[in-house]
């Protein structure tokens, strides 16, 4: 297992880069696709991207750390995103966040040791009409309250 983590299979990266014809202008999308495939951006993938696109690794690193959806840290199987958009903020974001922190023991940006959950606070999920909102993976949960958190999380193993 350790070996795999140290040296991930990079063929997927090559395939992704080929899909974008190796053009560096697609760097942001290439990194998104790599994250989709590997769950995060392992360092060797970034090194390969720099090499294949013929751009400095410093630029790849700069882009990878600028955009908040990109992560250089390994994330959990289920990413909990709590929306801190304005509507959600007004309707009790803080209490939702605190309850998730209590339930999972995580603070923003962390992952549980068993890699079950990662916890992120995001700017806006764009579902303001059903605020407050959180999402787990691709599922949206609207009109949330601190009380419902336990139930929602229990669905994700």
């Amino acid at each position: 297992m350790n070996n795999i983590q140290e040296k991930p299979d990079l063929t997927e990266v090559e395939r992704i880069i080929a899909k974008y014809n190796g053009k560096d202008s697609w760097l942001v999308m290439i990194l998104q696709d790599i994250q989709e495939a590997y769950n995060y951006l392992p360092e060797p993938t970034l090194e390969l991207v720099a090499e294949k696109l013929n751009i400095p690794l410093s630029r790849v690193h700069s882009v990878a750390t600028f955009y908040s959806s990109l992560s250089l840290q390994e994330r959990g199987r289920h990413v909990i995103r709590v929306c801190d958009g304005t509507a959600c903020h007004l309707k009790g974001f803080v209490n939702l966040r605190d309850e998730i922190e209590r339930q999972t023991g995580l603070t923003e940006g962390q992952t549980t040791p068993d890699k079950r959950f990662s916890f992120e606070v995001v700017a806006c999920l764009g579902a303001c009409a059903i605020a407050p909102v959180m999402s787990v993976g691709n599922d949206y949960h609207g009109e949330m309250s601190a009380e419902k958190i336990k139930d929602v999380l229990s669905k994700y193993k």
Binding site: E43, P56, L57
Partner: peptide, 15 residues
């Protein structure tokens, strides 16, 4: 290059 954004921005080496 730069890394991160906003007030967390720094100048650093790759990775």
């Amino acid at each position: 290059n730069f890394a991160n954004r906003g007030h967390k921005r720094i100048v650093t080496t790759p990775l």
